[in-house]
Amino acid sequence: MPDADNRCRLVLILPEGEDIAQRAAMLEGALKGGDVASVILPQYGLDDGQFQKHAETLVPIVQKAGAAALVAGDTRVAGRAKADGIHVAGGIEELAETVEKFTPRLIVGGGNATDRHKALEIGEVQPDYVFFGRIGGDIKPEAHPKNLALGEWWASMIEIPCIVLGGTDPQSALSVAETGAEFVALDRAVFADPAQAPHVVAAVNALLDEKAPRFEE
């Protein structure tokens, strides 16, 4: 298997759902498809108690597959579920506090970088990664042009890795890779039909193996 460490890698965002067993099966299936760097597990509409139960089931599945489990939502849930990291969906103050409190014990990254100025402000608090896009924002087949442009600008200039949200078409992963971004996040592209998730993950990895630019050592 080609080395995925020297090219853009896949990050999965698990879609919302109430049924833990269904979500666990969907996630397990996707992770069998091939290389996944990390999985973001958002809280969505779950209350903290429900989210805790989901996280305690889902985090070990991610870790068993060799990926990092990033919990987006309640930081106490992340701690109790022994997640690898926290994805901060809120603003810069929340991100700064989370970085200060949990780095380097946990991976801490975040988004809401809607323009260059905000992205640089986020970079100043030294997260482990910056996320371009918003969870649930993958509504078109292609990645949002603004996120691609921000990812390209960031990757060419800043050492902190970035994750750029792709679109609903798995092929959009390549346009993200071509920006130089270290990671592409996919949600609907992989999970729209859970039965197909392993095949989509395999296909995206094959596409990136074949066509994604390689990072210099």
Rank of each mutant, 00 (worst) to 15 (best):
M1F: 12
D5K: 09
N6I: 15
C8F: 15
C8E: 03
C8A: 10
R9H: 06
R9Q: 14
L14E: 13
L14K: 12
G17I: 14
G17D: 11
E18H: 04
I20A: 03
Q22R: 00
L27H: 02
D35E: 06
V36W: 10
A37H: 10
A37R: 11
S38K: 02
V39Y: 01
V39N: 00
L46E: 05
L46W: 08
G49Q: 13
Q52M: 15
H54Q: 09
T57R: 11
V62D: 00
V62T: 02
K64P: 05
K64S: 11
A65D: 10
V71P: 07
A72Y: 02
G73A: 03
G73L: 07
A78E: 03
A78T: 01
G79W: 03
G79T: 08
G79L: 12
D84C: 11
H87M: 06
H87E: 03
V88G: 07
G90K: 11
G90R: 05
E93C: 03
E94Q: 12
A96K: 03
A96N: 05
E97P: 15
E100T: 05
K101N: 07
T103M: 02
R105T: 13
G111A: 00
N112Q: 08
N112F: 11
N112D: 08
A113D: 00
T114M: 00
T114H: 02
D115R: 02
D115L: 06
R116C: 04
H117Q: 12
A119N: 04
E121H: 13
I122W: 00
G123E: 15
G123I: 06
E124T: 08
E124R: 07
V125P: 10
P127E: 08
Y129A: 14
Y129G: 12
Y129F: 15
I135M: 08
I135A: 07
D138L: 04
K140R: 00
E142G: 03
E142P: 04
E142H: 01
L148H: 03
A149I: 05
A149L: 11
G151S: 06
E152G: 05
W154L: 11
S156K: 15
S156H: 14
P161N: 12
C162F: 07
I163Q: 03
I163A: 06
D169H: 09
D169A: 14
S172L: 12
S175N: 06
E178T: 11
G180A: 00
L186F: 11
A189T: 05
A189C: 09
A189W: 04
A189P: 10
Q196Y: 10
Q196T: 13
A197Y: 09
H199N: 14
A203M: 10
V204Q: 04
N205W: 03
N205I: 09
A206Y: 07
L207T: 05
L207H: 05
E210L: 06
K211A: 07
F215R: 09
F215C: 15
